[in-house]
């Protein structure tokens, strides 16, 4: 009976950290909490005399699986953005990228810039599904320029969910969004141009 005095609170720590792990939304925080859970699980196994299980939990469950999952999460939660090499250094491009970064960090996505030498190569890469979206400086004659006279960007994406997220968050004065449906090109949508701007162009 006197042994149970310390066994019960230690065992209660296991469901507590389990709930913390399940309720966590950020994948990286969840990984670290999985490590905490593994450490406490090893302690509980030792309390019940299962030394081999505790050792396996610490070596495989905590060390190996967390490292593998960290690599997997890092490489899968990334958004590949194509850009023209010459336009990377511009001030407005950096502004646009910081807006995009702030938008997608809410969804725990990481931006990865893929530079291309010309527009044709980038379009081909978008169609070959090498990148998720691309941005180029708007042509003077193409889409309407914003009222302030600053430069605007054309953003093309092939993922409809990305289009929805960007439509809600990226201000239309900075970029002109376009969704390209690769499966059936007829359904590709464009943002309705605000009327005030349409009059100017």
């Amino acid at each position: 009976m006197s042994e149970q005095l310390y066994i019960i609170p230690i065992v209660l720590l296991l469901p507590l950290t389990g709930c913390m792990l399940v309720l966590q939304v950020n994948p990286y925080h969840a990984l670290v909490i999985r490590g905490i859970f593994g450490a406490i699980a090893a302690l509980v196994y030792v309390l019940f005399g299962a030394a081999d299980v505790a050792l396996t939990e610490a070596l495989v469950g905590t060390m190996l699986s967390i490292t593998l999952y960290a690599v997997a999460v890092r490489s899968s939660l990334s958004l590949r953005v194509g850009a023209i090499e010459d336009q990377l250094k511009a001030h407005t491009a950096r502004e646009l990228l910081s807006v995009l970064r702030a938008t997608f960090s809410k969804h725990h996505l990481r931006l990865e810039i893929v530079p291309y030498t010309n527009l044709l190569a980038m379009q081909a890469a978008l169609r070959a599904k090498e990148i998720h979206c691309s941005y180029v400086l708007s042509e003077p004659g193409g889409s309407p320029s914003p009222p302030g006279g600053g430069s605007r960007y054309d953003i093309q994406t092939r993922v409809s969910r990305l289009y929805e997220i960007m439509q809600a968050e990226v201000p239309p004065t900075k970029a002109y969004l376009r969704y390209i449906d690769l499966a059936n090109p007829d359904k590709s949508t464009e943002v309705p141009i605000p009327e005030a701007m349409e009059g100017k162009s």
């Binding site: 990984l31 670290v32 490590g35 450490a39 905590t62 060390m63 967390i66 490292t67 960290a70 890092r74």
Partner: peptide
């Protein structure tokens, strides 16, 4: 466990 922590910190 400490070695695993260092790996995770670098990642």
């Amino acid at each position: 466990g400490n070695a695993a922590l260092m790996l995770l910190a670098h990642i």
